[in-house]
């Protein structure tokens, strides 16, 4: 059902990143032990990279794709010998001789508990994969009782382009990082407050149109739980018409300025319902501006004038 080319290789990423020279030196290999198997991984790789290279499944929620890992959710923890505590595989880099266990009792317990703690306080129904992990790790978010404190709150709808449903927010910081220094540099949102009261906010909680938001939607693109959503998607979910199985994704190029951003158009019933950009494309790294993200309305009217 998809025309997206998942195996896309971006040549400009190869060998052009290093500051010193456009032709990077080959990275040395580091030998580690992963679940009893000796494996070689490139120096600088994370434990998660090593797991992925071996096909070892590690659940992640806050892992940043194109963002620096904040390792806040702690779902990806693994056991490293001689480490007092578990370590986040998404950010911990491999070291020679490291002995890593991804499926010990402690690891399973922590993953179960992270899922339970989140599940008991946040609406995870729009987060892909979570239900499966809950089952896999035997998490039971209901056992904290009905008095368990949650982040439940009304959906914030203060503009026509996207909605913020912080009942679904796991505080992974990805939207803040995408809006901030790592990509958009608009700094419209921040983490405010502390502890369980920490939440994503504008200054003094003002509505988005009063804030620095420029509606690039790069926060929506990185949100792992559906707390940030195109208004089209939100409205369709409310109406019960949102059906991902009936959607297609098609890559094309933005019709506006000359930068040439790849748009992935998510279509359902011949309507564009959402726009993303491939995370691994050298032009966008998954980011767009308001025109690319939301500038598709002009082809939606079946009868143009």
């Amino acid at each position: 059902m998809t025309q997206t080319d998942t195996a896309r290789i971006d040549t400009t990423r190869i060998d052009t990143r290093p500051q010193e020279t456009p032709v990077g030196l080959p990275r040395r290999a580091v030998t580690i032990q992963l679940d009893g198997h000796e494996i070689k991984v490139p120096e600088g790789a994370t434990i998660l990279d090593a797991c992925e290279s071996r096909g070892t499944a590690v659940p992640t929620l806050c892992y940043g794709d194109t963002l620096d890992p904040v390792n806040a959710c702690r779902l990806c923890v693994v056991e490293v010998e001689n480490s007092r505590v578990l370590v986040p595989s998404c950010s911990r880099k491999v070291e020679p001789g490291m002995v890593v266990h991804t499926d010990t009792e402690r690891v399973r317990h922590s993953r179960k508990m992270v899922l339970e703690l989140l599940g008991s306080s946040v609406d995870l129904s729009a987060a892909p994969s979570v239900a499966g992990w809950m089952k896999q790790y035997g998490a039971d978010p209901t056992r904290y009782g009905e008095i368990a404190k949650t982040v439940k709150q009304p959906v914030k709808i203060d503009n026509e382009l996207y909605v913020r449903d912080y009942s679904r927010c796991i505080l992974c910081y990805k939207c803040v990082d995408a809006c901030g220094e790592q990509w958009q540099n608009s700094f419209a949102i921040t983490v405010a407050g502390r502890g369980f009261d920490a939440h994503i906010s504008t200054e003094f909680g003002v509505e988005l149109p009063e804030s620095a938001c420029v509606y690039c939607g790069n926060c929506i693109a990185v949100c792992p739980t559906g707390a940030l959503m195109f208004k089209t998607e939100h409205d369709m979910r409310e109406l019960g018409t949102w059906d991902e199985s009936a959607q297609r994704q098609t890559d094309t190029i933005c019709p506006y300025c000359g930068v040439g951003c790849t748009l992935t158009l998510h279509t359902q019933d011949n309507e564009i319902v959402k726009v993303t950009s491939p995370l691994d494309h050298s032009v966008t790294s998954g980011n767009l501006c308001i025109k690319g993200r939301f500038g598709f309305q002009h082809v939606q009217n079946h009868k143009r004038d």
């Binding site: 508990m113 992270v114 703690l117 502390r194 502890g195 920490a198």
Partner: peptide, 16 residues
Amino acid sequence: DESCGQCVPCRVGTVR
């Protein structure tokens, strides 16, 4: 009160 709120085990765990 004093949990910074960054990681899930502490943010939610201290409440639970």
